[in-house]
Amino acid sequence: MTVTAIPTAAAPVANPSPKRKPRPLSRGRDWVRVGLWVALLFSVLIWAVPLIFMVFTSLKSEADIFGTPAFVPPWAPEWGNYVEALDRGHLLTAGGNSLIVAIIKVPVGLFISAAAAFALSRIRFKRQRLLMGVIALGAMVPIQVAIAPLFQVINGLNLLSTNLGLILPYIAFGLPYQTFILYGFFRQIPEEIDESARIDGAGNWRLFLTIILPLAKPALAALFILDFVATWNEYSIALALLQSQDSWTIPLALQGFQSQFTSSYGPLNAFTIMSVFPVLIVYLMFQRYFVEGAFAGAVKG
């Protein structure tokens, strides 16, 4: 599915010579296109307003924020806001925590989900469809219905305010969706492949690790990136489970900064920008796959 979607990204280059005059018949249509384009440009500008507003504010001194209209660019950028945000917030500690959590959670969670999806799709046992349904249900239930008892569970394990205490529930809450998606993907791999591997004497583990997993690379890659973004951004579970400031992840540090320095608009916006930096980098690296719908296609199942 993704395999077919990815190459299309390069297609627009092969436009026929744009210089050629449109045939008279289609001139009316051309005006429609121009009108559409202008409307799009206008909508895009509106859509960008919050981002522009934030970037401008983050680069303005306090005097400029209060004294100049918001849409006047910061002609004399005040980088001090970024220094101040770094200085007064807990950006680096929180960034470290977020990174550790994401780096462990994402691959481990994906592997566990893939193993479960393999069992559900390639090994026959009774009631496996029902089991898949029960697991998939977990993807649809809001986290908040379980959050108070979850606090008690983590507290009972003595893992409140630790990275591990966050990683475990993150893995668990990520499983249903990932298992469901990979289940759909694995089922599209022809069964003949299993047969011939088994004839060669491959057991379940070898089949899973050396044949099925490599074939699922596109889906795994898409899930990996989407899950990194989701893990980096998660707020409500972290809010319940991380009590001490040293254990905060990025969203908690941002919210903490916000409530502590409510009216330091410059540093606050600088802090917000720095907090979304890693996901923006990930986004820009894989931009084409995001917007071409390759991820969406891979993940829709």
Binding site: L120, G138, I147, V153, F173, L175
Partner: peptide, 21 residues
Amino acid sequence: AALPFLAPALVAYLVFVVAPA
């Protein structure tokens, strides 16, 4: 045969999602 593949997911799901719910 399926159990070794399912066990980690099932345990995590039961302990941190189903049981709390």
